[in-house]
Design a binder for these strands. Structure first.
Length: 305
DNA sequence: AACCTTCCCTGATGGC
DNA sequence: TGCCATCAGGGAAGGT
């Protein structure tokens, strides 16, 4: 569930919070999320300080002096920062075992696979119910764009996100456009929710083959992907079930969804019933009127937000 | 090579 | 009340 906007919201929440603070204890339990020996992880983290937090697509990158802690949240991964000393809001409560924390923040339980404790008493928790997430420890050499991230496509919020490359990567492709959007080597960070939303905003039917989509429509899609992601970040991400930010708060972008999860409800633009189908084994939501299979004329564009 | 399907996993939900 | 089937989907692996 965490896609680019959710991961970015977590990153923004942690920025300026944990950099430069010494790690004094690490707790972890055997779990397949660890792509590094836990002993090794312990050894590297103990006494270390986080120097910065970056993001590439759905990957979070915690920069240490010689290593990088790289975390992918998968489906249900949660990263929360607990501060037992803070009590400046009614949203806080005193949990019997974990002390003071925000209302929605999960206390450590059988799904909490990693706890990083800082010298100032705060802790960073990694919790993942379905363990689709992954935790890596990489050297600076390995973390380079052409090594570990070699199969990751354009990052929408970097200069590399260009129309020319976008159009270039579309050339000759016969896949359904929805599948291409989900492909992380095409554009990094787009998942099921924002793929559906971007296609709706572009007025493109998710089943259309990329090579049958007109160039000006591909251009709309290029712009829509970024717009949709930007808006979701402004709203703190989309919480449908498990997603919470680093403070344990839910996102509010679920209120803004135009098609995802709205099957059976009227289209907010034309009133037609939103349909749900399956593409690449992913629930796919669209409006058959605003997103006609045959495409639109440039002058017919119905949605231009 | 490109594209599609299957699988992993757990909790919520609905039918009986 | 409890039991079982179904659904959710990111990404890797396997199949066509």
């Amino acid at each position: 569930m965490p896609e680019l906007p959710e991961v970015e919201t977590i990153r923004l929440g942690l920025m300026g919070q944990i950099e430069g603070v010494k790690i004094v204890d690490v707790e972890s339990h055997p779990c397949r999320v660890f792509q590094v020996e836990r002993d090794c992880l312990n050894q590297v983290l103990l006494g270390a300080k986080i120097r910065g937090i970056d993001r590439l697509g759905k990957f979070l990158i915690f920069r240490l002096s010689e290593h990088n802690l790289v975390i992918h949240l998968g489906m249900t991964g949660q990263l929360t920062l607990r501060d037992p000393s803070r009590c400046d809001s009614p949203q806080f409560f005193r949990h019997p075992t974990t002390g003071l924390q925000r209302v929605r923040q999960h206390p450590p339980d059988q799904h909490t696979h990693l706890q990083i404790h800082f010298e100032d008493g705060r802790s960073l928790f990694y919790r993942d119910m379905r363990t689709f997430g992954k935790i890596y420890l990489l050297t600076h050499e390995e973390v380079r764009r052409d090594v570990f991230f070699s199969r990751v496509g354009m990052e929408p919020f970097s200069k590399e996100y260009s129309l020319a490359v976008f159009l270039g990567n579309c050339r000759g492709r016969k896949v359904r456009v929805k599948s291409l959007l989900l492909d992380q080597s095409f554009v990094a960070g787009v998942g099921n929710i924002y793929a559906d939303e971007a296609l709706f905003v572009s007025g493109i039917h998710p089943c259309r083959r990329v090579n049958r989509i007109r160039i000006f429509e591909r251009e709309w899609l290029f712009q829509s992907v970024k717009k949709v992601l930007e808006k979701a970040i402004r709203f703190g991400g989309t919480t449908l079930r498990d997603y919470i930010d680093s403070d344990g708060r839910q996102g509010t972008h679920q209120e803004e969804l135009r098609v995802y999860g709205r099957e059976g409800s009227p289209c907010l633009v034309c009133g037609a019933e939103i349909k749900k189908i399956s593409i690449s084994n992913r629930g796919t939501h669209f409006c058959a009127v605003c997103q006609p299979r045959a495409g639109q004329k440039k002058s017919d564009r119905r949605i231009c937000e």
